[in-house]
C-alpha cells in the first residue's frame, strides 16, 4: 500500500478541480464558507470532515447540482458555470447513497445513464464496468434486490461508464461492513492505478483517507482547516506520545530533571504523555529505560489526528 501511495506522490501540476472562496448560504446558515482547494491530475484527494461539515454541499456545487452563493469553481481549468457539458462529460460521480431506479435492472440503469452520457459501444462498456466492480453476473437483476455493498459498487460502475478523467466519490464506504470497506478501498486504488483516474473522495473517517489519499483537505463548519499532502500533514509538528511505564512517579522525576521537562503534558497512574516531535520518540524511550523505568508501550497521537477526533466528537 505504501508503494501505491508513492506512485501518486509525483503530482502533476495540472489542476483538475479548483475552488476559490466558494460559499453556499442558506437563509441564516452558511453550509460552505469561502472554501478553497485544489485537486491535481492523478491525485486521490481526501475530502475530510465530520458529518455536516459541508462536504456534500461542496461536492454538489462541483457537479453543478447546487448553485454556489459566491466564489468560483473551475474544473479542468475551465469555469464550471460556463462549461458545464464539457466538464461534466469528463467526470464521474457517486453522491451520498448510491440510488438507482429500483424497478430497473443494473444493466437498464447503466443503459439510461450511458445513453445520457454519450457512451459509445454501450453494451460492452457496461459489461466491462460491471466486471470491474464484480457485478457482471447480477447485471439482469433488479436493483431493488441489491445489498448496500452491491449498490455502492454499481455506483462506482456508473461513475466509470463514460471513461471519465476524474471521479468524485462521496462517502463511498458509508454503510459498508469492515470487509466491504476494505474491498471498496482496493477497488478505488485499482481504478486510480489501472485507469490513471484522478479521484476526489470524501469521508468523515481519517484512517480511510490516510490509507487512500495522497493529498487532502479537512473542512469543518464549511471552512477549510488545512490542505496538503496527507503524510506531511499528519506527521508534521509535534505529537502527543503516551509512554506506558511501570513506575509513573519515577518516570516523571526523570523527565523533569532532564531537558524534556517542558514537554510533559499530562500523566495518570499508568502513563505519561509528552508533546514531542516524532523523531524524538526513540530518544525519550532510551532515556526512560536508562533511568530504570520499564516502558511497556508507546502510543503516538498525531496532532492532526487529535484535532480531527476533537472536531468529530464535538
Amino acid at each position: 500500500m505504501a508503494d501505491f501511495r508513492q506512485n501518486t506522490k509525483t503530482l502533476s501540476s495540472e489542476t483538475y478541480i479548483e475552488l476559490n472562496n466558494v460559499s453556499k448560504r442558506y437563509k441564516n446558515f452558511k453550509a460552505v464558507d469561502e472554501l478553497s482547494l485544489k485537486v491535481f491530475k492523478g491525485d486521490i484527494y481526501g475530502f475530510l470532515g465530520p458529518n455536516g461539515a459541508g462536504k456534500s454541499t461542496s461536492i454538489r456545487m462541483m457537479l453543478s447540482l447546487i448553485k454556489p452563493s459566491g466564489g468560483s469553481i473551475k474544473l479542468f481549468g475551465k469555469d464550471l458555470a460556463h462549461n458545464r457539458y464539457q466538464t461534466l462529460n469528463r467526470i464521474g460521480a457517486l453522491i451520498e447513497k448510491p440510488d438507482f431506479y429500483k424497478y430497473l435492472t443494473a444493466r437498464e440503469n447503466l443503459e439510461i445513464l450511458g445513453k445520457i452520457g454519450n457512451v459509445t459501444d454501450l453494451t460492452s462498456k457496461i459489461d466491462e464496468t460491471l466486471e470491474l466492480v464484480g457485478l457482471r453476473d447480477r447485471s439482469e437483476s433488479k436493483v431493488k434486490t441489491f445489498s448496500q455493498g452491491m449498490k455502492q459498487r454499481l455506483g462506482i460502475a456508473q461513475s466509470l461508464l463514460h471513461d471519465p478523467d476524474m471521479i468524485i466519490l462521496d462517502e463511498p464506504a458509508n454503510g459498508l461492513d469492515p470487509q466491504g470497506q476494505k474491498e471498496m478501498r482496493h477497488l478505488i486504488q485499482r481504478i486510480n492505478v489501472e485507469r490513471g483516474l484522478t479521484i476526489l473522495i470524501s469521508s468523515h473517517i481519517l484512517p480511510e483517507i490516510e490509507q487512500l489519499s495522497n493529498r487532502m483537505v479537512i473542512i469543518n463548519k464549511g471552512k477549510s482547516v488545512v490542505e496538503g499532502n496527507v503524510q506531511e500533514l499528519l506527521n508534521e509538528g509535534e505529537m502527543k506520545v503516551s509512554f506506558f511505564v511501570d513506575d509513573v512517579a519515577k518516570a516523571i522525576q526523570a523527565i523533569t530533571t532532564s531537558g524534556l521537562a517542558s514537554s510533559l503534558a499530562e500523566s495518570d497512574d499508568e502513563k505519561i504523555i509528552l508533546t514531542i516531535e516524532q523523531e524524538r520518540i526513540a530518544e525519550v524511550n532510551r532515556f526512560l529505560v536508562n533511568n530504570e523505568t520499564a516502558v511497556s508501550a508507546i502510543k503516538p497521537l498525531r496532532s492532526l489526528e487529535e484535532y480531527f477526533i476533537n472536531i468529530t466528537t464535538a
Partner: peptide, 14 residues
C-alpha cells in the same frame, strides 16, 4: 424521492 436526480443531473444534460 428515489435520489436518481443526482445521477441524472451529474451527467452532461440540460
Amino acid at each position: 424521492n428515489s435520489g436518481t436526480f443526482r445521477l441524472l443531473m451529474t451527467r452532461p444534460i440540460s
